[in-house]
Amino acid sequence: MNELDTIAAEIIKAINALPQVQQSVTQDTNIARDLGLDSLAVMNFVMTLEDQFDVSISMDKLADIKTVRDLADAIAELKRHQTGT
């Protein structure tokens, strides 16, 4: 598994732990639309991921993130920029 897949796998694991989520989740799952999460639920979910990966995902970045893969991409890039902190 490359770094992106590892991050995506952790995200999927975190999504599966959400009480609202019943369906199976892949890297192509659209987080808000397919999972039926409202914007607040998405923001709160991302907050837990920020702590898990020790990165800061600003709300404007969040607006461009649709799928699990988008989110994994964003976290991977932030980790590259925030190393050594």
Binding site: V55, S56, S58, D60
Partner: peptide, 23 residues
């Protein structure tokens, strides 16, 4: 501006987020 949320009334959580963006 770039916007980050911290947990409600949680100064430690704010400190963590400021630490992440210190550079």
């Amino acid at each position: 501006a770039k916007v980050t949320r911290f947990r409600h009334n949680d100064p430690d959580d704010l400190a963590r987020r400021l630490r992440r963006m210190k550079d």
